[in-house]
Amino acid sequence: MLQFDHASKRYPGNIDALNRVSFHLAKGEMAFLTGHSGAGKSTLLKLIALIERCTRGQILLDGHNLNKVPNRKIPFVRRKIGMIFQDHRLLHDRTVFDNVALPLIIEGLNYRDTARRVRAALDKVGLLNKENSLPITLSGGEQQRVGIARAVVNRPPMILADEPTGNLDPELSQEIMALFEQFNQVGVSVLIATHDLELVNKMGYRRLVLEQGHLTQGGESSHVAI
């Protein structure tokens, strides 16, 4: 599903955020991406979502070489990824329903199917009764669940989550992680960047560990895969 092949990212000023990172995430696999702040977790996720482009090496997503995706095609790559952010990134002047419907509106789905799929997604995250609320009236955990519903509503083959439990207490964090497990069980590939090691250890999925831009654990070691 997702393959990093010696991918490096160098920011202007010779700052190496990622250095020859190689790993392969299979279809339907779930993995955690851990490491200290500044280790390159966010950069790695940005490369997948084409918010940044890698300076060396290549990344394959669902068989497509992301280096070869022209800028105008970036939106279509992003539609294959359900992205979840620490700060939720919801539209605060729209209802929960409208927020979750956004990916479907972008694709131009008709209203009837949109409503059906939005309600199904909200039902899955347990917020069906909140569809007319504004995000600001919801708790942090609920807002994150709206973000998750939005990420899965167009049934992407892959979910990327950047510190999805960063602001939540352990109990809520566990609920959120349980949601990701559910999506993974129906075949969605899931990559979660987090520094909540306790939770990661408890759940026991594959761990990709980044240290100062190097993948030190969980990947294919770069000198083997030349």
């Binding site: 105008r72 539609r79 992205m83 990134r89 972008i106």
Partner: peptide
């Protein structure tokens, strides 16, 4: 946000 969710510039 809309761009992150996959909106084209045209949209």
């Amino acid at each position: 946000i809309t761009k992150l969710v996959g909106a084209t510039d045209a949209f």
